[in-house]
Nucleic acid binder design. Structure first.
Length: 802
RNA sequence: GCUGGUGUGGCGGAACGGCAGACGCACACGACUCAAAAUCGUGCGGGAAACCAUGUGGGUUCAAAUCCCACCACCAGCACCA
């Protein structure tokens, strides 16, 4: 049998598509509906793409191509998320400019993507580090600022005495990943965006989307809305502070309080604390830990008592000790908690460690001597309060309400919501990012750069390494820093922090709609034409960050009338990762990286794409296999060679198989079940080989079915067989009449075990089926004694219970 | 620890209340060939059988890989969120 030559065919068609501008779309195409298929744009690392990345690109390309054949006007764009730490570090290592590194990496990516034969509209390509693009990122930042959603706030940053401010990923076990020195947490003024203002809407509006359920769940949990009560506590020192609790029903069980060591409460209490040396030492220890370490690695419940001062429980006037404990974070809630060891395991362990005796059980129904009796155990079980004065005897749920009302009436408590989500730290002390377009004037304070002066471009400089003091490298460049105040015209200094990598990626899908607009980030008409994105594909790791940031960003633009939609993405899916053949993540150091270009050279892009679709469920993790591409190549050859057995008229015996395939492949692509779509095409191929003939019209339809996955070979077959221009082909429709079976095979069970399979008419009645089954010896063998019950599920099963 | 997810032949996987193992890989055999590769075809969970098999143990059901409860293992993300 002949083998086709993928290299020749693929080059030919890729060239042709380019010349014809086949995949360039207009925002409006008369008579066609728009569809927007989006895949997260790649971060152009120096490593290039491996076969793991190919999976989502080729899969979404298949979706886009099918929609196009179905008659939609499809936007399927591509670009590069070009700002970021990796490019900067590579540049430093190679002593080049980040701009050069990015240009080089983008070229590699583009070559790889184009060899795959993606149906991308390259005329809309964007790059977030292009001044024409980041001008609008800066412009949008200014809108956040002007609407009070951006401000400077003191935040804790990772700090290394040698390398300056570090990203979380640059800290490992409390040490700097570059030089190995111990890192600390240092407070620093940072720009933040108030995403928490949108917390409720970010949860509630998920109802307007069709994201996969686990993606919605992840976002809801990440935002972490909790309803509770903020209660004021007095102290013997006369200083008051508030705590936040979701378990107000346990307030009579308080035996101590815990405050964040680095919070403002400790500062206010300082004059009254008699063991300040000890407390101050504990603060230093805390500064060495990141929030994550404070939460995860602090299994020992470290803490220190603030001696000389006691807190007063507002419900009964009881005095309890106050501790500083690093498991309490200054940034969450009020930075203080009430501790009830009898009903909170964390408090229980803290009390045990610090020998705080006298645990008070206030909810009956559990034993609290060895372990706390927590809310997950007592809520909704009708448990009642004990040891709680006038609330004793009430059911937990009632008591919760009554205690809250009582405290609110007394004016010392407020119902409140707290969010796990914190505001978005938007400053980076790095070179390779969008400069934040703000100017500081001693007289006028922070002033936005006038919009007509945008973009504030990144100066091209030799030395852009991070600063040891923790300042941005831009701060060293006088010509950049020194400017005039837009307000008073006096001397002023530019902000030298840059934006995080998440900035440019928060609105890139909007720019694709109108990529060359120099007057606005995208015209309202273009946005209305394409938004919301119909299908957005991206990695699971972005579910809680990028996806949330992008939704927040859009909501803000919607509020100020610049986005036409409340939610930017209608549906969101995440592909499973492709591991190396040895079952671990592809990485250069492990030597299991497969370059898609190598595979394409051997078997062609079509075979690679088909194998990527077939290798497993799209949402699950799968292992790469070299043999897989070979099997896909084999399938394509089998389809290719059907040309030799072509007959003029349709082969009736194939009607069922072909129509079944049309139905199954159509539904499977719609449902992102690419693996079973390919399996169906294989099954149908086997049928065709059994008969060893296929009608022209049948072949044309069958080839169309594989074309979203193997577009090059499909167009070549069309040309060779004289099927006309592929771009005029429409997606085949199912002839349901060919799928109607008159006879079906029905499994017959006795007591739930299959004993025989009988052939019956598809529309046979229960009695008819029963009578036929009871003539089969295999069935009769097991039907002994009376038949107690007969279950017949039409076309599915017949079950005798004896 | 928390959150989300996953456990099915030698392997990748399918089925997601109704014949477990579709489809493919690997393997074996046959055809073609001087021969090999390629190709085409046949077989392929275990067991002599009764039967046993979808991580483990329970439960619901006429019927469970699928639904419920408990547990174990693995993967990913993380900020002990009071």
């Amino acid at each position: 049998m002949k083998q086709y030559n993928p290299a020749e065919i693929e080059n030919k068609w890729q060239q042709k598509w380019k010349e014809e501008k086949r995949f360039e779309v207009q925002n409006h195409q008369p008579g066609k509906q728009n569809r927007y298929v989006l895949i997260e744009f790649p971060y152009p690392s120096g490593k290039g793409l491996h076969t793991g990345h190919v999976r989502s690109y080729s899969a979404m390309d298949a979706v886009a191509r099918k929609l196009r054949i179905q008659g939609y006007n499809v936007l399927f764009p591509m670009g590069c998320d070009a700002f970021g730490l990796e490019a900067e570090r590579t540049a430093i290592r190679e002593k080049k400019l980040p701009q050069e590194i990015v240009a080089r990496n983008i070229a590699t990516f583009k070559k790889q993507l184009q060899k795959l034969g993606l149906s991308v509209d390259w005329s809309r390509e964007i790059n977030t580090s292009d001044p024409d693009y980041y001008k609008w990122t800066q412009w949008q930042f200014l809108q956040f600022y002007k609407h009070g959603l951006a401000e400077k706030r003191e935040m804790l940053v990772n700090y290394c005495p040698n390398c300056g401010v570090l990203a979380n990923e640059e800290v490992e076990d409390g040490k700097c990943c570059q030089c190995g020195r111990d890192t600390t947490q240092k407070p620093k003024e940072q720009w933040i965006l108030k995403i928490t203002n949108y917390a409720d809407r970010l949860i509630d509006d998920l109802a307007l989307t069709n994201y996969m359920p686990h993606i919605k769940t992840s976002q809801i949990n990440w935002i972490g809305r909790s309803e509770g009560v903020e209660v004021d506590f007095a102290t013997t020192a006369g200083v008051n502070f508030s705590i936040f609790t979701t378990c107000i029903e346990t307030i009579y069980g308080i035996t101590f309080m815990v405050v964040a060591p680095d919070g403002k409460i400790v500062k206010e209490l300082k004059p009254y604390i008699t063991n300040w040396d000890e407390v101050s030492e504990y603060q230093k220890q805390t500064a060495k830990k990141s929030d994550f370490m404070r939460c995860e690695l602090n299994k020992d419940k470290s803490g220190v008592q603030l001696k000389g001062v006691m807190a007063i429980n507002p419900v009964n006037g009881k005095q309890v000790p106050i501790y500083a404990g690093d498991f309490v974070l200054a940034s969450y809630g009020t930075g203080a908690v009430m501790a009830v060891p009898a009903h909170d395991q964390r408090d229980f362990e803290f009390a045990a460690k610090h020998n705080i005796g006298g645990n008070i059980q206030v909810i009956s129904g559990g034993d609290v001597t060895e372990h706390a009796f927590e809310k997950t155990d007592y809520l909704g079980k009708g448990c009642i309060l004990i040891n709680s004065e006038q609330f004793t005897g009430q059911i937990v749920e009632e008591a919760k309400k009554n205690i809250t009302d009582y405290l609110v009436k007394k004016g010392i408590a407020r119902k409140n919501q707290n969010y796990r989500l914190s505001d978005w730290c938007f400053s980076r002390q790095r070179y390779w990012g969008e400069p934040i377009p703000m100017v500081y004037c001693d007289k006028c304070g922070w002033q936005p750069v006038p919009e007509d002066q945008l973009p504030v471009t990144l100066p091209i400089v030799d030395n852009y390494e991070p600063d040891k003091e923790g300042n941005s490298p831009l701060a060293r460049i006088d010509s950049f820093v020194n400017t005039t105040c837009p307000c008073c015209g006096g001397v002023a200094k530019r902000e030298t922090d840059t934006m995080p990598g998440w900035a440019g990626s928060s609105w890139y899908y909007m720019r694709y709609c109108d990529p060359n607009n120099s007057k606005e980030f995208a015209s309202s008409d273009a946005l209305k034409a394409w938004l919301p994105v119909n299908l957005y594909n991206g990695g699971n790791e972005h579910t809680t960050r990028h996806l949330l940031f992008a939704r927040f960003w859009n909501k803000f633009l919607f509020d100020i009338g610049l986005s036409p939609v409340k939610e930017p993405f209608d549906s969101r899916v995440s592909q499973g990762i492709v591991l190396g053949a040895n079952g671990v993540k592809m990485s250069k150091s492990l030597g299991n990286v497969v370059d898609p270009l190598d595979v394409i050279n051997q078997y062609g892009a079509d075979a690679l794409r088909v194998w990527e679709a077939f290798m497993g469920d799209y949402f699950e993790t799968v292992n790469w296999s070299d043999d897989g591409t070979k099997s896909a190549f084999r399938l394509l050859n089998r389809i290719w060679n059907m040309k030799e057995v072509l007959v003029e008229n349709n082969v009736t015996e194939l009607d069922y198989a072909i129509n079944h395939a049309i139905k199954k492949v159509t539904e499977d692509i719609d449902n992102i079940k690419f693996n079973t779509a390919i399996a169906e095409i294989m099954t149908c191929t086997n049928e065709i080989y059994k008969l060893n003939k296929i009608g022209k019209a049948q072949y044309k339809n069958f080839v169309t079915l594989i074309s979203p996955f193997a577009p090059h070979i499909a167009e070549e077959i069309f040309e060779e067989c004289g099927f006309g221009e592929f771009k005029d082909q429409t997606w085949p429709t199912v002839d349901e009449s060919k799928l109607v079976l008159t006879q079906i095979e029905l499994p017959v069970q006795v007591n739930g075990k299959v004993r025989a399979v009988i052939k019956v008419a598809a529309d046979a009645s229960a009695d008819e089926v029963k009578n036929i089954a009871l003539q089969v010896t295999e069935v009769l063998k097991y039907v002994t004694g009376d038949i107690k019950k007969v279950i017949y599920v039409p076309k599915k099963i017949l079950n005798f219970i004896v």
